[in-house]
């Protein structure tokens, strides 16, 4: 750090201290807030007087979440047919043309009726409870590596295509929009329930567990990680310098 930079830093601190000591808190609050926003903004309502009121444009820019009841859905529309085209261009390289997944990338369609199977196939169609989540998640996080790049209409269209791949909608010209998205029910919607461990696992609250002669016979080895042999080699660890 140069001497002048050091000096500038010190004088800033000194100025801030002086300002805090002499200015009324409300004035200080207002100045800081105005500086942060780059424009004038209201004062905080709270007792500490910290932070400033968020402007409607700012809330609109960040509050894009969508709930199962449709709250938060933006205006827009799209069909599965339109979505097919977008999906092939933007999504299929990872998720496959029909949502079947490429390599180890997530499978989006199929698997209906497999949740009790030895190896369940959990997809939008077989597992997800709400269509709103599909819209919300793609909007905030997809395509992977280029998030927040799809328009509202493109999002409705892609969601429609995913619903069609899962046989939730049948007509490729069905128009998905802000009004009807939340009315569409997914097959597994009713199979979720809130955490019930304190009831269903009540037996684990044993208080006084067995300490002596707890098993009649000497334990036997039933399985060994060494047999599976998928542990990364210690010697292949990351290089650290």
């Amino acid at each position: 750090m140069s001497k002048s930079a050091k000096f500038a830093g010190l004088s800033l601190v000194a100025a801030a201290a002086l300002f805090a000591a002499t200015a009324a808190p409300s004035v200080a609050q207002h100045k800081v807030a105005a500086h942060d926003a780059g424009k004038s903004a209201g004062k905080s309502a709270g007792k500490l007087g910290v932070g400033r009121v968020a402007l409607p444009e700012e809330v609109a820019a960040w509050d894009t979440d969508v709930r199962p009841d449709g709250k938060g859905l933006p205006p827009g529309k799209g069909t599965a047919k339109q979505g097919d085209e977008i999906f092939q261009a933007q999504c299929a390289s990872c998720h496959g043309e029909f949502g079947q997944g490429v390599g180890r990338w997530p499978v989006l369609a199929g698997g209906l009726g497999t949740l009790k199977a030895e190896r369940p196939d959990k997809t939008v169609g077989s597992y997800w409870p709400d269509v709103s989540t599909v819209y919300d998640y793609i909007q905030r996080a997809m395509p992977f590596g280029n998030a927040r790049s799809l328009s509202h209409d493109e999002l409705y269209a892609v969601v429609a295509y995913i619903l069609m791949m899962n046989d939730v909608i049948k007509d490729e010209n069905f128009e998905l929009n802000a009004k009807n998205l939340a009315t569409i029910k997914l097959p597994n919607a009713d199979n979720f329930f809130d955490d019930d461990r304190e009831v269903s696992e009540k037996a684990f609250w044993k208080k006084e567990p067995c300490m002596k002669n707890c098993k009649a016979e000497a334990p036997k080895v039933l399985g060994r990680a060494a047999n599976v042999d998928v542990t990364p080699d210690e010697k292949s660890g990351p290089k650290v310098d």
Binding site: D65, R67, P68, L115, K116, P120, K122, V124, Y127, W128, P129, D130, S132, T133, D136, Y137, A141, N191, F192, F193, D194, D195, D196, R197
Partner: peptide, 19 residues
Amino acid sequence: QAREETSKYTDLLADGRAR
């Protein structure tokens, strides 16, 4: 009901239902 509390971080039980 975000993705990380529906698709993920829900616990599938043997009867096909999920916590």
